[in-house]
C-alpha cells in the first residue's frame, strides 16, 4: 500500500522529499527521547521525572506514527492509541502521587 501513489505517482520527487523529512523526524524524536530518558534518570525533583515520562509517552506515539508512514503499514495505528491511553493514565497517577506526597509533608 502506498499512501501517496494515487495523487503523486510512484517515483515522485515530492514523495522522496516526504520520506526524507519523515526520516529526519524519526531521528529527531529519537534524540529527544534519549534526552528525556536522561532527565528521568538524573531529574533533581519528582516533577521533572513526571514531566519527562509524559513527554516520552507522547514522543513514542509520534514515533510509531512516523514509522507506520515510513514502512507504509496500518497495523501499528492501534499501538498509538494504546500508548496514548496508558501515557494519559500514568501521568494522572503520577500527578496524584506528587500531590499526596506534597499534602503529607
Amino acid at each position: 500500500m502506498n499512501l501517496f501513489a494515487p495523487t503523486l505517482g510512484a517515483d515522485s520527487v515530492i514523495e522522496d522529499a516526504l520520506f526524507l523529512l519523515i526520516d529526519a523526524g524519526i531521528i529527531l524524536i529519537s534524540l529527544a527521547t534519549v534526552m528525556c530518558l536522561y532527565r528521568i534518570i538524573k531529574g533533581p525533583t519528582l516533577v521533572d521525572r513526571g514531566l519527562a515520562s509524559d513527554t516520552v509517552a507522547v514522543q513514542i506515539a509520534g514515533l510509531i506514527l512516523l514509522l507506520s508512514i515510513r514502512f507504509e503499514t496500518l497495523v501499528t495505528f492501534d499501538a498509538v492509541l494504546i500508548v496514548s491511553i496508558l501515557g494519559f493514565v500514568s501521568t494522572l497517577a503520577f500527578a496524584q502521587f506528587i500531590g499526596r506526597r506534597g499534602a503529607a509533608q
Partner: peptide
C-alpha cells in the same frame, strides 16, 4: 491492560 486502565482511571 486497557480494561484495567479504565478502572484505574475511575479509581483515580
Amino acid at each position: 491492560l486497557v480494561a484495567a486502565s479504565g478502572y484505574i482511571l475511575y479509581a483515580l
